[in-house]
Every structure is written in C-alpha cells, then in structure tokens.
Measured scan of single mutants.
Amino acid sequence: MTFKLIINGKTLKGETTTEAVDAATAEKVLKQYANDNGIDGEWTYDDATKTFTVTE
C-alpha cells in the first residue's frame, strides 16, 4: 500500500510517499524521514486517504 506524508513545516513544506504493509510501518518510516529532515510537530492520520500530516 502507498502512504502519503504531507509536511507543513516552518522551513520545509511538501509531500512524500512510502510503500508499506500497514499504517504502523508507514508511520515509523515517515516519522524517521521527518526526523532526519528536522521536522517536529503534531501528527495526524486519515485512514480513508492513507495520508499522514505533520504540522510544525
């Protein structure tokens, strides 16, 4: 399955996707991606669209 991350950061905005077997696995990968890029904020997840959003 494809999961999307929408980034609403102070210095970085955009989106990325990852392939994962489930939402929990995708969340780990996407949170690591955000952490690697210095993004720390509030996370939400929409199961209907398989989209995570992080807002700083």
Rank of each mutant, 00 (worst) to 15 (best):
T55F: 08
W43Q: 00
A34Q: 02
E19L: 14
F3A: 02
D47Q: 10
I7N: 02
L12S: 10
T51C: 06
F3E: 02
K31L: 07
T51M: 04
T51I: 07
L30I: 03
T2L: 14
I7H: 04
M1H: 14
A24N: 09
K28T: 10
K50H: 13
T25H: 13
N37D: 03
N35L: 15
K28A: 12
T44M: 09
L5I: 04
F52L: 02
Y33I: 09
T11F: 14
A26V: 02
E15S: 11
T18D: 02
E42N: 10
T2W: 12
K13E: 06
K50I: 03
G38R: 06
L12M: 14
A48F: 10
N8A: 09
K10M: 12
G38A: 07
T17K: 07
T55D: 06
M1I: 15
A48W: 09
D40E: 13
N37H: 15
W43T: 01
T51Y: 03
A20M: 03
E42L: 14
D22L: 03
V29A: 10
L12W: 15
Y45S: 01
K31F: 06
A34D: 00
G14H: 14
T17A: 08
M1F: 15
L30D: 00
E27D: 04
D40Q: 15
K10C: 14
A24W: 12
T51H: 03
A26M: 02
T51D: 01
F52G: 00
T44W: 08
F3G: 02
D40L: 14
T44A: 12
G9H: 09
G41V: 02
I6G: 02
L30N: 01
I39E: 02
Y33D: 02
K4V: 12
I6R: 05
D47F: 08
K10Q: 12
T55K: 06
T49N: 09
T2R: 13
E56Q: 10
D22N: 09
L5Q: 01
A24Y: 09
N8H: 10
T18L: 11
T44K: 10
G41M: 02
D40I: 14
M1Y: 15
E56H: 06
I39S: 02
G9I: 13
V21M: 14
K4F: 14
L5Y: 02
I39Q: 02
G41Y: 02
K28E: 08
D47Y: 07
L30P: 00
Y45M: 01
N35H: 15
A20F: 04
A23C: 11
L12C: 14
T16F: 15
T49K: 07
G14D: 10
K31D: 02
T51W: 02
A23V: 13
T55P: 01
T51G: 02
L12Y: 13
D47T: 07
D36F: 07
T44D: 09
K10A: 12
K28L: 11
Y45K: 01
T55L: 05
Q32M: 10
L12E: 07
L5K: 00
